[in-house]
Design a protein around this nucleic acid. Structure first.
Lengths: 208, 208
DNA sequence: TGTACATCAGTGAACGCGCGTTCACTGATGTAC
DNA sequence: TGTACATCAGTGAACGCGCGTTCACTGATGTAC
């Protein structure tokens, strides 16, 4: 995302601007730390285009944010997959959890928007529980479930859904609070992740 | 917070408006679910006064939000204290945790603002860890520490700070995600809290 | 007890600003002949 | 190979709106005499 002069895209490559807009909005969000700073005109300035040029690709600012969120879920999933691939079954859970925490710490404000907005319109029905695999982030969550199963040496099932939920909740609480209240005396991230896993999967953490 | 006609406060009672502004801002935040909806003019409309009337009590909108947050921390602390008072040492931890969760569920958007904004300016130094008791919510946190100690039958100390941190992180993650992703198949709140505490204490939750 | 006056609580009109959105447009680029 | 043309990618100016903020003000209320 540079500030240098923009060259108009060639014919047939108009879709490139779409990607630039998403990248610009993500950068703007992460830099300012404020969702309110992500305005249509603000994004246009950041990308280096005239404001109306956005309408060719997005109907409104919310659509841009949705695209930012969607892309971020993809990046998160890739990070978890890499952690999966580069770990043994034994240390997979730690690796996946650390990758999750690292993702959240690298893009704290994008992360906050991913998991901090009330998304009541997700799917058709409101006030209705849906299967996990229909929600955004489903793939990432499934990786966590798989890593839990690898660690507890149990087959996937309702129990591992519960286990993964408990662990997810703890990881999310950790990274969110660390971003929001940096002045709190947090333990080092590795320690914290290990402790969370040990405690919430029924083992004993260090120093307990 | 009514919409009925306002009567001008009598002499010497001008401070009443301050409280009305804070209440109006909190109501507006909770109803709209959006921090962006809490504008100076919006709050004035909600309270039923002219916009400039606010300047007698607050310098800007952020000051109003700070007051809302401060008051909410007071309410949270009172709720936890009530839970303390009405419980035995044995079931104190469950009672305090449930009170925390209930508070967050009753005012989910106020809660989100309390713990979701990056407060880098808290205290003088930036990027610097501070003792817990200098942060907002310190009293509430101390109640959690005390409840953990009551349950583990250990004296307060570094270990219980760590314990309370781990539990806090889990509770916060739970209530935040439940608000943000209501479509996720969450277990009932009581089950979830019990599971979190049971796991956290190194025991075994139900169905594990 | 009455009355003039200072003060307090709050107002109404006006401003400049950035926002989202519309409209007619421009100019480069590829294509048909 | 040249040229007319359609199309594509993006622009500039303008609009109405709600916002924060200022300013001089109003009118009720308590107080001093």
């Amino acid at each position: 995302v540079s500030t240098s002069e923009r060259r108009r895209n060639r014919r047939g490559e108009g879709e490139r601007l779409r990607a630039e807009i998403v990248a610009g909005a993500a950068a703007l969000l992460e830099e300012t730390g404020s969702e309110e700073a992500v305005t249509l005109r603000g994004v246009a300035r950041r990308v280096g285009i005239a404001a109306p040029s956005i309408y060719g690709h997005f109907a409104d600012t919310d659509e841009i944010l949705q695209a930012v969120i969607g892309q971020a879920f993809g990046v998160l999933d890739e990070a978890l997959q890499r952690a999966e691939d580069e770990s043994t079954e034994e240390d997979r859970l730690v690796a996946v959890c650390l990758a999750y925490v690292r993702f959240a710490r690298q893009k704290p404000h994008v992360y906050r928007v991913m998991f901090g907005r009330h998304r009541s319109t997700e799917g058709a029905a409101v006030n209705r529980t849906r299967p996990v695999d229909e929600l955004s982030g489903a793939q990432a969550f499934e990786r966590l479930v798989a890593a839990v199963c690898a660690r507890t040496e149990r087959p996937p099932g309702a129990g591992s859904l519960r286990d993964a939920t408990v662990l997810w909740v703890a990881l999310h609480g950790y990274v969110s609070l660390q971003t929001a209240v940096p002045a709190f005396p947090w333990p080092p991230a590795d320690d914290m992740v290990e402790t969370l896993i040990a405690r919430f999967l029924g083992g004993f953490g260090p120093e307990l």
